[in-house]
């Protein structure tokens, strides 16, 4: 079987966009923008949509994909800030919509979570599993809830670290050291957030708060303000930490 002629539409504003674009290309997929797909929709095998912070744009692009593509083309959408079931509800063919969730950097993710919507057909889920496996990733299907498992748990840890920092109970550096040296976390929560993108973490936190409506999911005001100020982490040169240059931050 050959992947080289398969085209994937990729659209959305998450930091995942750039990394997925690169990964798709490396694995032999032709990557199309929404505009390119409009003139060549017959070639499209999959659509992948990754907006998390701007849900109006997410809805707009999902509707465009749904009207553009043949009804049997799977639409994979990030269910980090909203359930896959809600995204599917925006479409005329909800059975071809399936949620997924992961965070950058993808090189550190051996496994990617899938979340079928209530409306998702079995063959859509199977296609989604095969697609991510073709990218060299394991998959784990979980039930549909905002943030799935890893992004949800990590966003709560980062949110609590943001509360701790906001209260000046400890410095950012000491918070990160404590979590690495006291509990063996792979990264400190604040440096981790800076690498993932604070906008992504905020989108998950806000989504949990919106859908589950509990004090438990209250976003740390510091996290929200940093995102509003454009300080989303390494990508923008400033987040919980300041970075002199993007190159240095990546080193």
């Amino acid at each position: 079987m050959t992947m080289t002629n398969k085209a994937v539409v990729l659209t959305g504003t998450s930091p995942l966009f750039a990394e997925l674009h690169q990964l798709f290309a490396e694995k032999g997929y032709q990557v199309l923008s929404l505009a390119q797909a409009a003139t060549n929709s017959a070639a499209v095998a999959f659509a992948v949509e990754v907006s998390n912070l701007d849900l109006e744009q997410k809805a707009e692009e999902i509707r465009q994909l749904d009207s553009l593509l043949a009804p049997d083309v799977p639409i994979l959408t990030t269910s980090l800030a909203i359930t896959a079931t809600e995204v599917a509800s925006w479409t005329k063919h909800p059975e071809r919509v399936c949620g997924f969730g992961t965070l950058v950097p993808l090189v550190e993710r051996e496994l990617i979570e899938l979340a079928p919507a209530l409306q998702t057909e079995a063959k859509t889920l199977q296609a989604a599993e095969a697609f991510f496996q073709s990218l060299g990733k394991e998959t784990e299907a979980v039930n549909d809830e905002v943030g799935l498992v890893f992004p949800r748990i990590l966003s709560l840890i980062i949110n609590e670290a943001a509360f701790t920092l906001m209260e000046k109970a400890a410095t950012a550096r000491d918070i990160d050291i404590a979590m690495k040296k006291g509990t063996n976390y792979p990264y400190g929560p604040l440096e981790w957030a800076d690498r993932i993108g604070l906008d992504e973490i905020y989108a998950i936190s806000r989504g949990l708060q919106r859908d589950l409506a509990e004090e438990r999911y209250r976003t740390a005001p510091l996290l929200r303000k940093l995102v509003l100020a454009g300080r989303v982490g390494v990508r923008s040169g400033q987040g919980f930490y300041a970075y002199e240059s993007k190159a240095e931050a990546k080193a």
Binding site: R152, I153, L156, I157, N159, E160, A161, T164, E167, K168, A169, A170, T171, D174, I175, I177, A178, M179, G182, T183, P189
Partner: peptide, 21 residues
């Protein structure tokens, strides 16, 4: 690491969601 006297200090506070969530 230095921390003010707050419940769970750093580790036992920030690690709560790992288990609880």
């Amino acid at each position: 690491v230095l921390v003010t006297d707050t419940p769970g200090f750093i580790v036992n506070r920030i690690a709560r969601p790992y288990y609880n969530e």
